[in-house]
Design a protein around this nucleic acid. Structure first.
Lengths: 143, 143
DNA sequence: CTATGTGCAAAGCGTTTGCGACGGT
DNA sequence: ACCGTCGCAAACGCTTTGCACATAG
């Protein structure tokens, strides 16, 4: 967390109460929350917090590489801390997103013909399926 | 294409001119176009076509499993034909999305501990980097 | 002939922005 | 005291919806 404070100072960002709380909520969250989700969670302890501040803060933290936007098919953007290389499990029913690690994949190399495309920076796996909760509820995917 | 006509009949969808043209454009497209992109491309040959029809048609084709929505961090939704298993290359600069194939990955198995999560249906790789065009233009990624 | 699909215009929803007040540094 | 940030409200962009007419089956 004080690494966060240092990063803010380096970036010229002020250490406001709101900023700290929004970041702290993201540290604790494992579910890649949307802006609105964060808003509802934080509103309990910060009743005057506004949704705009959440949006502005998320954009600013993203710009400075402290958090990142998650790839999704939904219209709502979702966010996560910029952590070590990881991959995502996505439930097609409840659209929960969970991290997992797969080091043997990380160390493997891509097909050679990708060099023709350009310069590769990162590779990520997304696994789709049904999480245990949704399997139990016996709720098959929509349509 | 007549497979498409058959699929429409099976789904109880009428074979309208607009529907056929929108689907045909998606068959030809390799760049995972957004609704608006399709609109501009089709407008040339179908001047009376409306954007709402594009949206409605895309939603309907998606519901029937003929096309799918691509995972993205942008607010605009992008679409592709439901083809054989493939993976995506995404340029962080121009956000172009290109398909690639990687059969040795497709045949590999996931870490065993994922069974604890639920039932896996599909796994996809997303490669991020800079495409050749953007490398040439010497346009480094934003910020 | 009937149900579905279309085009138009208006509404919806998530997100962004201009403004004046506020608060770190 | 200064510049970044906040909350408010209004605007924005992408997408969806209600309605009346048109069209495929």
């Amino acid at each position: 967390m004080s690494a966060f404070e240092q990063a803010c100072r380096d970036a010229g960002l002020k250490l406001t109460h709101q900023r700290l709380e929004i970041f702290r909520e993201l540290v604790l969250a494992t579910d890649h929350p949307a802006a609105e989700t964060l808003y509802h969670r934080l509103k309990k302890h910060l009743p005057t917090l506004s949704l705009d501040t959440i949006y502005r803060t998320l954009a600013s933290l993203e710009r400075h590489g402290l958090i990142s936007r998650v790839y999704t098919t939904q219209s709502q953007a979702r966010f996560e801390l910029e952590r070590r290389l990881h991959h995502h499990l996505i439930c097609s029913n409840c659209s929960e997103i969970i991290d997992f690690y797969w080091e043997s994949f990380d160390q493997s190399s891509l097909p050679e013909n990708l060099n023709a495309w350009g310069k590769v920076k990162r590779k990520n796996v997304t696994v789709h399926g049904l999480c245990r909760k949704c399997l139990k509820k016996n709720t098959p995917d929509p349509a």
